[in-house]
Write a protein that binds this DNA or RNA. Sequence first.
DNA 1: AGGATAATGACAGTCGCTGACAATTGACAA
DNA 2: TTGTCAATTGTCAGCGACTGTCATTATCCT
Lengths: 209, 209
Amino acid sequence: MTGLRERKKQRTRDALIVAAHELFVTQGYESTTVDQIAEAVDVSQRTFFRYFTNKEEVALFLQNMVERLYYEAVCARPVAEPPLECLRSTLDDVWDDVGVAVEEITPLDLYLKMCQVIEVTPSLLAAHLRHSLLMEEKLVQEVARRTGVDADQDPRPRVLVAAFTGVMRTAARQWSMRSDASLETAREVTRDYTAQLSPALGSDWGRRR
Amino acid sequence: MTGLRERKKQRTRDALIVAAHELFVTQGYESTTVDQIAEAVDVSQRTFFRYFTNKEEVALFLQNMVERLYYEAVCARPVAEPPLECLRSTLDDVWDDVGVAVEEITPLDLYLKMCQVIEVTPSLLAAHLRHSLLMEEKLVQEVARRTGVDADQDPRPRVLVAAFTGVMRTAARQWSMRSDASLETAREVTRDYTAQLSPALGSDWGRRR
DNA sequence: AGGATAATGACAGTCGCTGACAATTGACAA
DNA sequence: TTGTCAATTGTCAGCGACTGTCATTATCCT
């Protein structure tokens, strides 16, 4: 389980992530070559591609981890809770866990700066959106499960999740452009944006159709 | 305006689009090389990259054109119309124009098949989502203009557009997986999906805040 | 200790994409 | 018509992302 081999692999993987993030943040994503990342960790380029299928993957590694964390937190919520409230308050709760999880791999500050890099790098933003779409679909299924409806018949799970994630994307974008981007401001911004969401969405979720 | 030079350029551009689409549809996007496309039109690879900045662009050319068409149709609507109704009925109207516009460049059938290719090709889907995000932002501004609100203060334009485009993405995905994908079925599917959207979104748009 | 197994490095090759420069072709005036 | 200018194109060289292959090294297990 925790053999030398495993630990070594984990360490090089983390080292690659940290080195890549530092380079991306300082020189930008496009102008950083995979060779530079590999050299910084003193492995061959070939080894890099054994850990990550492509350059995007290492750049979005933490982002994807955070999204997965959020999804799992949503699933762990009591089913009785109304779905929108569930999505919203999970967000409010999850930031501390995110901080802890990220810092097991890399300094938090590096992750925060990387979020900005993702927003301003077209190819990264594209890959990020695609991955988010997969997560959205999983959220739709979870919301459908909780409310006992079929997502293929009843459009409300998709409408709810689409609206929620859409607003969240906007919130994330606004937040990433702030100079004081931190977990605290992230919590504030998401709280503000999602608070305005409830009145805009119909609250008569209880009725079928 | 219509010199030989202009016409020749237009023709090679269209030929590149058609050739690329045929290859993408028959062999898949990833396994088609730019060299193959260029060879099919009998131009150099370098020339291809003078017409399109990258391989994605030629694959998404029609898709982007269609989205632009839709956006312009939305802007041309009477301002008095409620925004959701505007987005919805524009969609209902625009399909014929889409068919005409596409067929000026390539057979309609090729475009319909290409839509499926986009959905199943990760890198194309990603690029498509990124482009759609830009279009969404433009729609948000247009909705804000029509309703006389500030999209940076009032979240309702973003909520509305996010929900609408989110549901539309779902509709597009469902439609693209059908064996009888055509403009008629596209109109039907989008009509169905968007019709279910109104009740899910609050209709008290008139009130501020 | 030693053989099975997994991780790595080295190398060659493909493909997307770009810069530079020369050759060609259409536009336009003398 | 012809000569000049500008736009378009082809050729070539090169970079960077990514992959297959095979020999080498390092861990694991008995």
